[in-house]
């Protein structure tokens, strides 16, 4: 990233890097989760679900555009949201591993969405108090959409957890598999600490606490049990992704990579 070299007035230079990091992380999470969800279009278990999940993906693509567009501006090297989405290599992406996990069955996709929503919602609440006005704007717009994402995914997790034996088992399996990945959202790295220190974003521990309380309540209604001894599966924030991620990017970026520099 070229951010370190940006020439800005002394009083803003400090906050530019954390704001860029924050925008990139939020944008990459939204983009990659949207990309995963969008693959269900035409293949979901019921027409109503097909439409609903596409709505979530559409919201997330819109959010990714805003976050990545702002990241590009902060970087100041003329990169657009599309440049950031389609012309970076895997090691440069900053999304958490959770959002890139494969779709699995529809239960796994639902559980992944819920784990992200239940963090995303409280994260955006925190970002509404950011010292950066643009971040506040994007957070406020996104929060309205995400409040509904969370309502819907929570409802599905409770219903499927407390549904049939089979749906219960599938949701418990999905929770066991994904819970360690969700913990990457809670573990602050240096960039997260700089973001919080600059007043750009909330302290991740406080977000984690709210998310955990929310999840516990829903899981008890869902008759599901979160693993207690899960070691965080992390790496995405540092650009160390899963093997599956490379294939996903190859697919997503194929046209821009094959035909560089043209309009679409």
């Amino acid at each position: 990233m070229g951010v370190e070299t940006i020439r800005k007035p002394a009083d803003t230079r400090v906050a530019v890097k954390p704001a860029f990091d924050l925008a990139l992380r939020m944008g990459d999470n939204a983009l990659i989760l949207a990309q995963r969800n969008a693959a269900w279009c035409g293949h979901a278990p019921a027409l109503e679900e097909d439409i609903a999940l596409a709505n979530v993906a559409l919201d997330l693509i819109g959010q990714a555009k805003l976050w990545l567009g702002y990241a590009g501006e902060l970087e100041g090297e003329g990169r657009s949201a599309d440049d950031l989405a389609f012309l970076r290599d895997g090691r440069e992406f900053r999304n958490v591993l959770l959002v890139e996990t494969p779709n699995g069955d529809f239960g796994q996709t639902t559980m992944r969405q819920w784990l992200y929503d239940s963090w995303h919602h409280f994260m955006l609440e925190g970002l509404k108090a950011s010292s950066d006005e643009r971040i506040v704007e994007i957070a406020e717009k996104s929060a309205k959409e995400v409040a509904y994402h969370l309502e819907r995914s929570t409802d599905l997790v409770i219903r499927l957890g407390d549904g049939t034996d089979e749906s219960h088992k599938r949701m418990q399996d999905a929770l066991d598999y994904l819970w360690p990945f969700a913990r990457e959202l809670d573990v602050a790295d240096d960039a997260d600490r700089a973001i919080a220190a600059a007043g750009i974003g909330p302290d991740l521990a406080s977000v984690a606490e709210k998310a955990l309380a929310y999840r516990s309540e829903a899981l008890s209604q869902a008759t599901l049990t979160a693993p207690t001894d899960a070691v965080p599966r992390k790496g995405g924030k540092a650009g160390v992704h899963s093997e599956a991620f490379g294939f996903m990017l190859a697919e997503m970026q194929v046209l821009q990579r094959t035909h560089p520099g043209v309009k679409w």
Partner: peptide
């Protein structure tokens, strides 16, 4: 189509 009223409301919204 929806399993119950609450889901019907969500589906209707979508």
């Amino acid at each position: 189509h929806a399993p119950d009223a609450e889901m019907a409301i969500n589906n209707a919204r979508d």
